[in-house]
């Protein structure tokens, strides 16, 4: 085993401790990937996915995504370990709600660093081993808030819209090297991020959704699975909306 090169593909997932990130890590492992993930805190669910006999299968690091140097070191360690990165999923993000004029500049800055600067820096670092091998997929988790205006989430929506701009620009930039870049824009799905949505708002969302329910992590997961598979090998530079028809 030790002198044969590990042929398993490698996925980097930001924010793998909870919610969609945890589901993505689980799914990539089930698909035979080695996974590198980080978050500020580990969860019991993520720890349970570790394979003690083969520690290289899943690596978690404690990294605050607002620390650019720590993010850089995280990717450098992943590349040293595996010599390749096949998939990057820019999943980590923080929710930010409130009228703009009532939100402090420091809060805005922190949210932009996690929701925009972090995915840009991760793309910059992970694209290098992808360029070297001339293959790879970057998936950016956007939101329907990038596509439709909504009160209280202007800054969150601005960061997500910027991420879609990154998707389009990078798709052109690295397409000739065989690398695809896509965005997935989910509607509301159940996770810690949406735990604060009250019953009345929930009913309103369901009423406005043609498919008549909130999303689930699995709905988004299936689309990421498709986009990172050979079935999607001619899709790049697009934002795929997964919202039960909410924005149609």
């Amino acid at each position: 085993m030790s002198d044969t090169i590990d042929q398993r593909p490698v996925a980097v997932v930001s924010g793998g401790s909870r919610g969609l990130g945890l589901a993505l890590v689980t799914d990539f492992l089930a698909r035979g990937y080695r996974v590198e993930t980080f978050s500020r805190t580990e969860s019991a669910e993520l720890a349970a996915l570790r394979v003690p006999a083969d520690p290289g299968t899943l690596t978690w690091s404690a990294v605050d995504g607002t620390d650019a140097e720590a993010v850089q070191s995280f990717v450098a360690a992943a590349v040293r370990r595996h010599r390749r990165i096949d998939v990057l999923v820019n999943n980590a993000a923080v929710g930010l709600e409130g009228l703009l004029t009532l939100t402090s500049p420091a809060t805005i800055d922190a949210a932009l660093r996690t929701n925009l600067t972090l995915p840009i820096l991760l793309a910059r670092a992970c694209l290098k081993p992808m360029l070297a091998r001339r293959t790879g997929v970057v998936v950016n988790l956007s939101s329907i808030n990038a596509l439709r205006g909504q009160t209280g989430v202007a800054v969150y929506g601005a960061a997500k819209a910027a991420l879609d701009g990154l998707t389009r620009g990078l798709a052109r930039e690295v397409g000739p090297a065989g690398i695809r870049v896509v965005s997935v824009a989910p509607g509301y799905f159940d996770s810690d991020m949406t735990a604060g949505i009250g019953p009345e708002q929930r009913r309103r969302i369901v009423r406005r959704t043609p498919l008549g329910r909130l999303g689930a992590v699995e709905d988004v997961l299936g689309v990421v699975r498709f986009l990172t598979s050979p079935a999607a090998s001619f899709i790049t530079g697009q934002t795929i909306t997964v919202d039960g028809g909410y924005t149609c």
Binding site: K128, L131, A132, E173, V174, P176, A177
Partner: peptide
């Protein structure tokens, strides 16, 4: 420029 980007990426992996 993309060739140069690839060259720099390859060299970063080789030379750290």
């Amino acid at each position: 420029s993309l060739h140069l980007a690839r060259l720099v990426a390859v060299l970063e992996m080789e030379l750290d």
